[in-house]
Amino acid sequence: MSVAGLIRMGDNTLVLGQRLSEWCGHAPALEEDIALANMALDLIGQTQLWLGLAASREEAGRDADALAYHRDAWDFRNLLLVEQPNRDFGVTMMRQFLFDCWHFEVLQALAAHPDAEVSAIAQKSVKEVTYHRERSSDTVIALGDGTEESRGRMQGALDRLWPYVGEMFSTDDDDLTDMTALRPAFDAYAETVFAQATLTRPDSDFAHMGGKTGARHSEHLGHMLATMQVLPRSYPDATW
């Protein structure tokens, strides 16, 4: 059982949950504001489970909070996709959709993982993520199909984020499951949504790498962590 694989799962949900929580109070409609917060809350909850399990397995005296708040960017193992900034609502929802499609497949695979604690977390999470994927799919379809402006924004969002899709399906021994095996199901599902959304999948499959290995994160992660970690780092003696 790879602790690094658990940390990857937890860092993805942590970083994306943090990004989504930035929307609170600023969304296009109250109903969307509440929905985004629900997704963020689910992801933060999943983070506590994944990083909690990672901490207990590594037996280094750390807990989930220590992992979240006392590592610097180079020790984070999240995908580059989730650290991308929110930009507009279209980019946020396209990022969410691409992540949800991947996340759903991973969790389905992990639900059958031989490690009982891993499969328990996956089984709980997949229920939440099934709904995330449903909602983000419908949003991508509605905004892709909606108006000329919205279609332009969604196609722009897809073009901008597509280079971060490939990393989700790269794999190594640290992963809890073989990520390459999940690609066909991802492509099939995403394709049906793009068709309804009248969006065109970019031709190039060029992929930026370096998030999940920690070799080279984007510049955005450092700023996010500087904000997120400021209190525990500034007041290391305090409990909250």
């Binding site: 942590l14 943090q18 929580s21 930035e22 609170c24 109070g25 600023h26 109250l30 504001d33 509440i34 917060a37 629900n38 963020a40 809350l41 933060i44 909850g45 983070t47 506590q48 990083l51 989930a64 909070d65 979240a68 708040y69 904000t227 997120m228 400021v230 209190l231 525990p232 305090a238 909250w240």
Partner: peptide, 27 residues
């Protein structure tokens, strides 16, 4: 909302986010 991204623990973050979300609901 100004402090959600800087909440000092994961639990505090979730609680604060849930609370601010409730305010949207109340509105």
């Amino acid at each position: 909302g100004n402090w959600i991204t800087r909440a000092p623990t994961l639990e505090r973050k979730a609680i604060l986010l849930a609370k601010v979300q409730d305010e949207a609901g109340h509105g």
